[in-house]
Amino acid sequence: MSSAAEIAAERKERRRSWLLSAPALFVLLFAASGPLLIILVYSFLPPGKYGNVEWGFSLDAWVGILYSRDIFDGTYKLADAHLTIFWRSLKLSLYTTLFTFLVGFPTAWFIATRSAQMRAVLLFLITIPFWTNLLVRTFAINQLIRNEGVVNTFLIWTGVIDTPIQIVYTDFAVFLGMTYVYLPLMVLPLYATIDRFDMRLLEAGCDLYASRWQVLRHVIVPVVKPGIIAGSILVFIPSLGAYVTPRILGGGRNMMIGNFIDLQFGAGRNWPLGAALSVTLLLAVAVALFVYVRYATRDDNRV
């Protein structure tokens, strides 16, 4: 039982809450969430001759994601070029996630097991690159590995090689760059869970005759799993939608889906296809997030 005054107070409270959130919601609705609906609409319109769209209804853009139409006989066949780009995006994102985990986990563990003072310093060292301009960091990698870059110049100068090794403008370069720029996104959540890890569990593990690797495999990894999942999602999602890194390190040929979308709005002059690709990317991210939320909110994973 609650009095009328309490119900009125509750209602007033709720209205106040909405009023306070309204300005933020307005900005977001206008310049972040709302426009996404336009993308959805655009993916069902026919393309205009010189970019943009015409008004009408067409599924061409959605079909065009996977199939291309032969200009001469009008038959549809799988668009190999598109598939290559999708496959590259997925493959490079997965590699990046895996590799950042492989090197990020020992790093996070190392930081979390230092003294409190050292921990603060190391954490700060990880945070600086994280907040440093992504473009600047990609430039930094580029200057290191390009043909006239530091590595090649050094190797030629020492006489190890005569002609520069072609690293930049390969898939490997994109992978390297993404690993470099997204690594802090893996280390930080891993650190957060390892920091809460009860080190007595290790002693218990050792006490029960587990070797160091068995402890790692059967005690540490299961307990810090939420951090591993969070880090993987945080790396995988931006990798999948990466634009700057593949543009600078992959050149024009080694496109990822982000660059492919850009192409449709530029030289490709197929805005509906670009819109359909955007929706597809959005859906892929949503699936990844959904899996994450499902996993993260399952009770047995709470630490």
Partner: peptide, 29 residues
Amino acid sequence: SVSRLPGFATIAVTVLVMLYLPIVLLVLF
């Protein structure tokens, strides 16, 4: 020490160095 895992320190230090090497070179030049 139970919390020390073989090879982890090496990887961690390498990661920290590699994280800063490109930036330091960029600034240096």
